[in-house]
Amino acid sequence: MEDLVPAPVSERVQKRRDALRAAGLRPVQIWVPDTRRPGFAQECRRQSLVVAAADAADRDLEAFMDAAFADMDHEDDA
């Protein structure tokens, strides 16, 4: 019986990438914040408070949101 040696990982990866490209896809690298980094939660809170303060100062925002939600409710009726 002949020993079957699997293809090296690099060949299998390249074959998979080639198949994905042939299907019309392309690789994209996305960098996201490191949630494990010290200070991450504090910075999220700081930014959230800034946004909340801006929202509270915008007198037209509540009316806009109410209108948007009302419009969404009417789409459900259709």
Rank of each mutant, 00 (worst) to 15 (best):
P27E: 12
A57L: 01
A7F: 12
Q14E: 14
D60I: 04
V32D: 09
E43H: 11
E62P: 01
D76P: 02
A56H: 12
M72T: 13
R36F: 03
D66S: 02
S10V: 11
G24V: 00
R59W: 04
Q42F: 05
D18F: 03
R26E: 06
R46V: 05
C44L: 13
P33D: 06
A7L: 15
F40Y: 15
K15G: 02
L49T: 09
D76E: 11
V9G: 02
E2K: 05
R36S: 11
E11C: 00
R45A: 11
R16W: 15
D34T: 01
M1Y: 05
A22M: 04
E2R: 03
A53I: 00
R36E: 10
E75H: 11
E11A: 13
W31M: 10
E2G: 02
C44A: 05
M72Y: 07
M72C: 07
T35C: 03
A78W: 03
P8E: 07
G39K: 09
F40I: 01
Q42D: 15
A56S: 08
L25Y: 15
D66C: 08
M65D: 07
D34L: 02
Q29E: 15
E2Y: 02
R45C: 09
Q14P: 00
M65V: 15
D60A: 14
Q42S: 10
E43W: 04
D73L: 05
Q29I: 07
V28R: 12
D58G: 04
M72H: 04
Q42Y: 04
D18W: 00
D18Q: 07
A52R: 07
R17T: 10
M65N: 06
M65F: 08
A67Y: 10
M1W: 13
A68D: 12
D77E: 15
P8A: 13
G24M: 00
H74I: 13
I30C: 05
V50I: 08
A7C: 05
Q47K: 09
V13M: 07
L49C: 14
E2L: 03
A23Y: 00
M65K: 04
R36G: 05
D34Y: 08
A63L: 13
L49M: 15
E62K: 05
D71K: 15
A56L: 10
V5A: 05
R26M: 01
F69W: 04
S48D: 06
F69D: 06
D66P: 00
P6M: 01
A41D: 15
R16E: 12
E75I: 13
R16V: 10
L20Q: 10
H74S: 13
A68K: 06
R59M: 03
P33T: 03
F64L: 12
I30D: 03
D55M: 12
Q14D: 14
A41V: 06
F69M: 07
A63C: 09
C44T: 04
P27S: 04
A70P: 00
Q42V: 03
V51F: 13
A23S: 12
R12D: 14
F40N: 04
R26V: 07
L4K: 05
D3C: 03
A23D: 13
D77F: 02
A41R: 13
D18G: 01
R37E: 15
A23N: 04
M1G: 14
Q42E: 15
E11R: 01
A41N: 09
Q47T: 08
V9C: 02
D71A: 14
P8M: 04
W31N: 12
A52N: 09
A78L: 14
D76M: 06
P8R: 06
D77A: 11
